[in-house]
Design a protein around this nucleic acid. Sequence first.
RNA 1: GGGCGUAUAGCUCAGUCGGUUAGAGCGCAUCCCUGAUAAGGAUGAGGCCCCAGGUUCAAGUCCUGGUACGCCCA
Length: 1063
Amino acid sequence: MRGSPMPDHSAARSFPVLPSQIDLPATEHEVLKRWSERKIFERSLEQSQGNPNWVFYEGPPTANGQPGVHHVEARVFKDVFPRFKTMRGYHVDRKAGWDCHGLPVEVAVEKELGLSGKKDIEEFGVAEFNAHCRESVLRNVGAFTAMTERMGYWVNMDEAYRTMDPEYVESVWWALKTIWDKGLLVRDYRISPYCPRCGTTLSDHELAQGYETVTDPSVYVRFPVTSGPLAGPERPTSLLVWTTTPWTLVSNTAVAVHPDVAYVVATDGAERLLVAEPLVSAALGEGWTLTGERFEGSEMERWTYQRPFELVAFDEPAHFIVLADYVTVEDGTGLVHQSPAFGADDMTVCRAYGLPVVNPVRADGTFEGGLDLVGGTFFKTADSALVEDLRARGLLLRNQPYEHSYPHCWRCHTPLLYYALPSWYIKTTAIKDELLEQNARTNWFPENVKEGRYGEWLRNNIDWALSRSRYWGTPLPVWVCPEEHYTVVGSLQELGGLAGRDLSTLDPHRPHVDDVAFDCPHCGGRAERVPEVIDVWFDSGAMPFAQWGAPHRNNEAFEATFPGQYICEAIDQTRGWFYSMMAVSTLVFGHSSYENVVCLGHILAEDGRKMSKHLGNVLEPMDVMERHGADALRWFMVASGSPWMPRRVGHEALEEIVRKVLLTYYNTASFFTLYAGAGGAWSHGRLAEAPAPQDRPLLDRWLLSELNRVVKGVGEALDRFDTAGAGRLLTTFVDDLSNWYVRRSRRRFWAGADTPEGNSAFATLFEALESLTLVMAPLVPFITDHVWAALRRPEAPESVHLAHWPQAREDLVDTELSEQMALTRRLVELGRAARVDSGVRTRQPLSRVLVGAAGFARLPEQLRDQIAEELNVQELDPLSAVDGDLVEHTVKPNFRALGKRFAKRTPLVAEAIGAADARALVEQVRSTGWAHIEVEGEPVEISSDEVLISEQPREGWAVAAESGETVALDLEITPELQRAGLARELVRLIQDARKSGGLEISDRIDLWWSAEDPVTARALHEHERTIAGEVLAVSVTEGAPQGDAHSTTSEDFGVTVHLRKAA
RNA sequence: GGGCGUAUAGCUCAGUCGGUUAGAGCGCAUCCCUGAUAAGGAUGAGGCCCCAGGUUCAAGUCCUGGUACGCCCA
C-alpha cells in the first residue's frame, strides 16, 4: 500500500519541475540565451586558464555560398572534443577562422557581376573586382556565424582569423620567404588545360563541363633506333610509336616504355619494328612475324633514336627511351611519345630524366613564326601537313581516324591545349622523407587513412604547384628585375624598406601590391612583382602561425599552441587541408602541426545522393535545427552509424533520435523532478543519509554498476575519438535507466524518501542522472544543460559545461550482478512471451512459474522478486526441482568450448553429445560437473561448460524457451487467483474513471460501488484495502452516492462504480 | 586507368578473439500493459550475410580473385 502522499504541487518544492512535455528547439533558444547572458563559454575558458593546453585548430570553411548540413558534421566534431577535454581539465582555446581567397569566390563574384573570363575582369578593374570578392566573403561569413551559434559550436568568432587579413597575408609571406631561403621555392613549368582563344587556363571544374567527342588522326610512326643492341646498319630497327596528336611530334623529346612490359621485334621481311609484346597483332595486323628478339622495358632505358622532325632546336641531350609506370598496353604500341610541354605525365617523366621542356607553340595556339612546315599555323590544323611530311619521308606506317572524348573550352568550344606555363613550385619532393616521418607520428582516425589514402598520396608525392594566374588570393611575394634576379619579401615592413617608403598600411592584395616596385638589390634594375597569386591551400595550411600573425606578432601565443593536438575535417581534405597543414609546417619548422586527425565520411541526402539544389534534396541546417533541435542533429552526426563512413541524413532519422534518446533521457529527469520535488520529498541534503552504495537494494546497485561502467566507457571512447561507441553506450544506458530501473522502482518513488529503500531509490536515480548528464554534455550540450539547471546540487557550477568529468567508481562495477540482471531480464521476456502464447493477461496473477536456466540457482532473492512481480506470479521455482518425468531435457554441444579442447575431433564429440541420453547426461553433469560419453569407442569426459542444457516441462504449461533458457507458467487459475485478478481489473477501471473524471493524480476520492456479479462483489470485499490504496480512496461504500458523482459501469465484471473528489 | 573504402532484414545500421539458432531500431501486421503515456512491452512476416574460390574441425568474420557503389587522384 502506498505510504506517502502523491506529489503535491502546492507544497514547497525542492526541485523545479521539468514538465513532461518539452519543446526542444524552444528550450535550446533559452539555453543559448543563458549561455550568452551568463557568458558560460567565456567562463569555461577563464576557469581553465593555467591548465595544460589541449590545442584544437579550426580548419577554416571557405566562406563561399551558404552553409549546408554537411558543414554541421565537422563542426559538431570540432565542438565535442574541446568540450570533452575541457571537462577533463584541459584549457582548450578555440579560435574560429575563415578561408577567404580562391577561385570559387571569384567565380561566384563573376556571376554576380555578369563577367566572364579574365579579360572581363581586367576591363572591369582588379581593384573593384577584389573589393567585391571581399564583400562576398563577409556576407557569407554572416550565414556561417548564425549556423555556428545555433548548433552550439563554441568557438571564438570575435577573434576569428581571416586568410585575407593583412597580418595573415604577412605571415604567409614570411613562410614563403623561409621556404625560398631553403631553396625549395622554384619557378618551373606546369601543364594546365588552356584555352588559346581565351588565353586562360581552366580549372578542373570548368574542364569537366567541356568534353566533346571528336575524331582525330591517330598515327603509327617509325623512330629509327640509333644506339643499343638494335642499332646499326646490319639490322636497322625502328620504335613504333602511336599518337593521336601529331602536332606534338614537332617537339618530341623522348619515348616512354613500361619497365615491366616485354617488347619484341616484328618483321614483315622488309623492315623490323619494336612493339610491346601484347600489342603486336593489334598494332601491326597480318603479315608480321616475330624475330625472337625480346627485351624488358627496363633493359631499353636510354637507347637513343632518330626523332621524327628536326624543326625545333634542342640545346640539351634528348631523344632516348625513358621508363614510366603510366604506360599501358591498352591501345597503341606500348611506346609512348613524350612532349613535356603538352602533357602532365610527359612533364613528370621527362623532368625526372632532366630533359628540357621545348615548346614551339605560342600562347595564341599557333606555332612560332619562323618554323618550317608549320610556322604560324594553329596547332590543331597543323596535323595534316605533318602527317603528309611523315608519309613522304617513309616514317608513317599507318594513319587512321580515331574517335575519342577531348576537352574543349566551355565558353568558346575551342579545343583545349595541355600547355606548359611557367609556374611556381614548392619542392615538397625534397622533404618527402620528412613528411613520411611526420605522418608516422600522427594518429589518424580512422586508422586506415594513415597508410592508405593519405600515406599513398605522400609516397607518390609530387611538387606543390603553388601559383595561380588569378586575382583574389595571397599575392606571391616575389619581385623580379629584367636580369631575372628574384627578391622574396617576408613582410610589409621589409617591402617598405626595399621601396623606401612606409607601406605598413598597404593592402597586400592585387592590384595595390602590384604597384610597388623597387630597385633590385643585386643589380639595381627595376624589380616588379610577378603576377601570380598562390594556391589557397597554402593559406589555410599556414593557419597554426598565420592565425596569430606570427612570427611578426603574437609569437608567444603561437609557440604555446604548436603543434596542435586535434584537427578534424571530412575525408575530402586528405589531399587538401590535412596535407597542406602537414606540408607547410614541415617545410617551415621541420615538424607537422597536428598530432591527432579525425577524418569524417560525407553526409548524403536521404536518397543516398549528394545534396544539391539541382536534385532538390537539400536539407537546410537552420530549418532542421528549428524542427528537431540542434541536439538531435548533433547526436546524428556523432552517434548515428559510423562517422568514418558516408551517411544519409533525413527527418526520420532525427525524429527517432529525439524519441529514443533525447526524450527518453529527458522524461526520466522529468519523472525524477516530479516526485523528488513534490512537497520537498527529497532534496540534495538527503544524499548524505542515503545508504552506502553497497547497502542499497540490488536494483540500485545494478544501476550504479552500469552507470560507472558507462562513465568509464564513454570517457575511454571519447579519448579514442570514438563518438559512435560512446553513443551506443549512452543509448543502451538511457534505455536501461528508463525502461528497467525507473519502471521497476516506481513504487519506491511513489512511496517517497522516508524509508531507506525510498531514499536509496531517489539517491540512486539522482546520481545516475547527474553523471549521465555530465557525460552526455559534450555531445548534446543543450538538453543536458537544461536538465542540469533543474537537478544540480546547490554547490555545483551553474552550467554543466563548467563542471568536471565525473570520476568512474570502478569499485561499484559488479560484473556478476550485471550478468544476473541480464538473466533476470531475459527470463522476464520469456515469461511475457509465454503469457502472450497462453492468452492469460498479465493482470491475472498466476500461482507459479518454473525456470530452467544455468545461473538461476545463484540468482539472488531480490532479483527473483523482480521476475515474480514483473510477471505477476506468486512463486518462482527451478525446473530442476520438478519431478524428472515431467521435464524433457535437451543437450547441445558448446562448440566454442569443445573446439578448444578437441580441435579436429570437435564434430565427432558434438555428434556423440547429441546421441547420448540427455536425461542421464544432465544428471551426471548436475551431480559431478562431468559426464562420460563415448566417441568412436573411446571414453571421453565432458564438463558442464561444454554442453548447453535446456529443459522443458512435458505438458500443461505455457512455455517459452530460447538459447537453453526456459520459463514455464502454471496456468491453473484458482478462485482466489481469479478474485485477485478481478481486483486488479477493478483498480484499472477506477483509475480510468479518475482520469476521465478529470481528477489530478494526487486527488483523494470517495468511492461507491454496486456489483451484480457475486464473484466481483466478493473480490471487492476481499481486496477493498488494496484497491482503496491504489486509487487513493478515503472511503469505500457499497451502494450509490448521494448527489453528483462520476460513474462507470463494466458489463464484463458486472459492476458499477461512482467516485467523487473527497472533501 | 590507379589508390582507398563500403556491401548483413523493405529502410538505417550493430555483429568483440572465427564457434554451428546472425541481432537492434525504424516501417508493416496482430496483441498486451499503462497515472513517466506524443511513451513502453510481446508476437509475427521479412536473410544467397554481393559473387566465386581458398584456409580451417568450424567462415558473416581470415586470404585470393571478381562484381556493384562511394570518395580521392589521373
